Simulated assay, not measured.
Amino acid sequence: MTQEQCTHRNNVQSSEKPHVYKVGIYGWRKRCLYFFVLLLMILILVNLALTIWILKVMNFTIDGMGNLRITEKGLKLEGDSEFLQPLYAKEIQSRPGSPLLLQSSRNVSINILNGKNQIVTQLVAGSNAIEARGKKLEVKSNAGKLLFSANDQEVVVGAERLRVMGAEGAVFSNSVETPHVRAEPFKELRLESPTRSLFMEAPKGVQILAEAGDIQTTCRSELRLESKDGEIMLDASKVKLLRLPEGKASPMGTRQTVYEVCLCPNGRLFLSQAGTGSTCQISNSVCL
């Protein structure tokens, strides 16, 4: 190539303008980016403000939140607390000197489960009644003395005195076994069976004692005092047998005002006019 051709090509290349490439975001893309960044900052500020407001309202502290405090012994709740879901805890107790209140609009149930998640003991306090289910129910005093016990076999009252405050007293459909029945001071004791019989028996005897009053036994049909191996003793300064029937005897002259008490073979008592000898044999028409 000649020298003239090289000079011409260099002149042509130097006369052309070089291309410039711009790097970055320009135009509407840049405006959208700034808008999104601004919106994100606003959201962050709003979120931070709401977080601070929630912490303030819920009373979040290092020890807990609200009425809930975290202590070394567990969780501590102050004031009224409402649980919408089941609560599982090993122990629930109130503050020293304050009562523990369990309140529900329907009922409060306490269930004891075994290893198979079956209910073995249950206590339900409802609006109509309090029900306890289990093998045995025991009530003890602070000293550990048994006051009341009930199971399928028997009911035991361990207190020194059982008081029935009802006006009608206590009603038993079956037999009652007790070593002592006593009324309150200056009160009457009544053992009554309005439609059936009343039996009192003991292997070593039955003692009826009224130290400051009378003993009255009333029945509609028959009153029987029976002693199979012993005797019946009437020990008193006066023994009155009212309304005994009088046996009719043949006239013996002047009517006497002295009578003797006669006993029939069937155990019936009657009065007979007294004579020089016994008149029971001639006045035994009552025994027929």
Rank of each mutant, 00 (worst) to 15 (best):
residue 105 S to M: 07
residue 13 Q to S: 14
residue 149 S to C: 09
residue 141 S to D: 14
residue 47 N to C: 08
residue 232 I to T: 15
residue 32 C to Q: 09
residue 264 C to R: 06
residue 76 K to R: 15
residue 10 N to H: 11
residue 132 A to N: 07
residue 83 F to A: 11
residue 143 A to H: 05
residue 111 N to A: 01
residue 107 N to E: 13
residue 82 E to N: 15
residue 259 Y to I: 02
residue 113 L to N: 14
residue 250 S to I: 01
residue 81 S to T: 14
residue 64 G to H: 06
residue 186 F to E: 12
residue 118 Q to K: 15
residue 197 S to M: 03
residue 121 T to Q: 14
residue 67 N to E: 02
residue 213 G to P: 01
residue 179 P to H: 08
residue 186 F to C: 00
residue 106 R to L: 05
residue 75 L to I: 14
residue 100 L to T: 06
residue 50 L to E: 07
residue 226 E to R: 13
residue 147 L to S: 02
residue 20 V to A: 03
residue 104 S to M: 04
residue 80 D to S: 14
residue 190 R to D: 06
residue 165 M to V: 11
residue 81 S to G: 02
residue 281 Q to P: 00
residue 185 P to L: 10
residue 185 P to K: 09
residue 172 F to W: 10
residue 250 S to N: 07
residue 46 V to A: 06
residue 178 T to C: 09
residue 268 R to Q: 13
residue 165 M to H: 08
residue 11 N to W: 10
residue 43 L to P: 00
residue 84 L to P: 00
residue 236 A to C: 13
residue 58 M to E: 05
residue 60 F to H: 02
residue 151 N to W: 12
residue 69 R to V: 10
residue 113 L to Y: 15
residue 129 A to I: 08
residue 267 G to M: 01
residue 117 N to I: 01
residue 281 Q to T: 04
residue 211 E to M: 01
residue 20 V to H: 08
residue 119 I to L: 01
residue 74 G to P: 12
residue 92 I to E: 02
residue 47 N to H: 06
residue 116 K to Q: 13
residue 184 E to K: 07
residue 36 F to S: 06
residue 148 F to N: 00
residue 173 S to E: 05
residue 141 S to I: 10
residue 127 S to H: 12
residue 247 G to T: 12
residue 276 T to D: 09
residue 59 N to K: 11
residue 145 K to D: 14
residue 51 T to C: 05
residue 86 P to I: 14
residue 92 I to V: 15
residue 102 L to V: 09
residue 43 L to R: 06
residue 204 K to V: 13
residue 158 G to F: 02
residue 3 Q to F: 05
residue 254 T to Q: 08
residue 154 E to C: 01
residue 227 S to D: 13
residue 132 A to V: 14
residue 57 V to R: 10
residue 226 E to Y: 09
residue 133 R to N: 09
residue 87 L to C: 06
residue 270 F to N: 13
residue 182 R to F: 01
residue 236 A to L: 10
residue 25 I to H: 03
residue 188 E to F: 04
residue 180 H to E: 08
residue 150 A to G: 03
residue 65 M to K: 04
residue 108 V to N: 08
residue 28 W to P: 08
residue 193 S to G: 07
residue 42 I to M: 15
